[in-house]
Design a protein around this nucleic acid. Structure first.
Length: 466
RNA sequence: GGCGACCUGGCGAAAUGGGAACGCAUCGGUCUGCAAAACCGACAUGAGUGGGUUCGACUCCCACGGUCGCCUCCA
């Protein structure tokens, strides 16, 4: 595998190395389920799903784990506000999360563990840390002793002395310490028994427990949004490496940048952010995936109608070239186009070079568009041989599929309604009579039915507008 | 206050110590009855600003300006 990824831990690109079992283990922090996920939450889901897909298409074995955090303060609060049990709310939101991300058509991760299904492992891990004197019970809580873990701050590049501690836990020995276990508080309706009394896990411990259970200790990539670097991932390292000793957790720490939800209509404080389901409903899965893939995962990405519109136009250009290839199959020539063959090799090479260089999806996209132009140019020159047309189509769709955009290559449902076919025929009659006013009116009618009409050298064609 | 990131054409966005990709938009042209699609051509003599290193910098270094993220539960 020649893929290298930028690691937050070292600040440089590191080669992705499979584990001893030959599998590239990837753990990405998933959502806390207390509401529908928004378009920003979808970015890591898309990035890590496509990362796994790319590795597999390159012949690697990969295992992707994205957890679901279903125990959290926010869940208690949201459930209370809605007047339902927090377990009920979390279960409903977890189901909705699955449904919403399914809309993207990127498949499911190999495992999607929940905190509530990992309670034994979590409690055992905390007990282990207490045993090693890296953690201590206080009241009904258990805290991690930050000062006792030497590497603390390495991931986020901060110095303990620089930190401004917030004094929220009165029971802590040190304000920098963080909770591993929280004793049950008044009004918290979901809780678990533990050696320290009833309560629930702190925020970070569940990922340490789930990652180890699903992938073992030394897996390839651990990721999530860049806002999780501190404290979440810093604390994960402290917990996991503290419990096992030494530098033994994830190899590469991979973090995606945030979406910019600058549009005033989408302020978090107002609470009317764009839900993933709504965005997919409006623009379609391909456009949403293209929107993410056209920017590098470590760049901030503005969210706006204009950007989504650009992505849609890009998808349409690809659909157009695929249609042109399908058309070229009829009456194909008998000679290969040498320039097209060359462009195919170059595009494939450039695609992989860019992807292998820190998952450079924008450059990969550019390689695809270079190929698109080369195809259009070749078809402009003449009709290549059928075998070449099919090869080029297969290769193009293959590249798209590596970006999660294989859906663009699925042939559009060919069942044009009879109504449209009738209108088309009437229009052809009008055109033959040179009654262009009537012909244009009929074209408008076809358009109103959701079909796009294009006159080509071999006669008119209609497509379902996408 | 501390730590860190970023600043490339109208918009978005890459690569790179020595010709500034790609997508969208715009303007010409070809094709078409027209349109659409496609193709051809034009579109940053310049990369926030000012210095420095270098034969040569958008690319490395410094300063300033601006935008932004994190600093205990936000992907």
């Amino acid at each position: 595998m020649s893929l290298r990824l930028h690691s937050t831990l070292t600040g440089v690109d590191e080669p992705v190395v499979p584990g001893p079992d030959g599998v590239i283990g990837i753990y990405a922090c998933g959502p806390t389920v207390y509401s529908r996920i928004h378009i920003g939450n979808a970015r890591p889901f898309v990035v890590f799903s496509v990362l796994k897909r790319y590795l597999e298409r390159c012949g690697e074995r990969a295992r992707l784990v994205i957890n679901i955090t279903d125990v959290n303060d926010k869940i208690y609060d949201a459930a209370k506000a809605e007047g339902i049990g927090s377990t009920e709310l979390a279960e409903r939101c977890a189901r909705q999360y699955i449904e919403d991300t399914d809309l993207l058509g990127l498949g499911r991760p190999d495992a999607e563990p929940k905190v509530t299904d990992t309670m034994d492992e979590i409690i055992a891990l905390i007990a282990d840390l207490v045993e090693r004197n890296l953690a201590y019970p206080a009241g009904g809580d258990v805290y991690f002793r930050v000062a006792a873990f030497p590497g603390y701050g390495r991931l986020s590049g901060r110095n303990l002395l620089d930190m401004v501690p917030s004094d929220d836990g009165d029971l802590k020995d040190d304000p920098l310490d963080f909770a591993l276990w929280k004793g049950q508080k008044e009004g918290e309706d979901a809780f678990w028994e533990s050696p320290w009394g009833p309560g629930r896990p702190g925020w970070h411990i569940e990922c340490s427990a789930m990652a180890e259970r699903e992938l073992g200790m030394r897996f390839s990539v651990h990721g999530g949004g860049i806002d999780l670097v501190f404290p979440h991932h810093e604390n994960e390292i402290a917990q996991s490496e503290g419990a096992h000793g030494g530098d033994c957790f994830a190899h590469i720490w991979m973090h995606n940048e945030m979406l910019e939800l600058s549009d005033s209509k989408m302020s978090k404080s107002i609470g009317n952010i764009a839900l993933l389901a709504d965005v997919v409903d409006r623009w379609g899965a391909d456009t949403v995936i293209a929107y993410f893939m056209q920017s590098h995962y470590r760049s901030r990405l503005p969210f706006s109608d204009e950007r989504l519109g650009d992505a849609e136009a890009a998808c349409e250009r690809i659909r157009n070239v695929l249609r042109a290839l399908d058309r070229a199959l009829d009456g194909a020539g008998d000679a290969n186009d040498a320039e097209l063959a060359k462009a195919l090799v170059e595009s494939r090479q450039r695609f992989h070079d860019s992807m292998d260089d820190d998952f450079g999806t924008p450059g990969a996209f550019a390689a695809i568009f270079d190929l698109v132009r080369a195809i259009n140019q070749a078809l402009e020159r003449g009709r290549p041989a059928e075998g070449q047309v099919q090869e080029v189509r297969r290769e193009l769709v293959g590249l798209l599929d590596m970006l999660g955009l294989g859906g663009l290559g699925e042939s559009t449902p060919g069942d044009t309604p009879q109504e449209v076919l009738d209108l088309l025929e009437a229009r052809e009659t009008a055109r033959a009579d040179r009654d262009f006013a009537r012909a244009d009116a009929l074209r408008d009618e076809i358009s109103a039915l959701g079909f796009e009409l294009r006159d080509g050298p071999d006669g008119p064609e209609v497509y379902r507008a996408s």
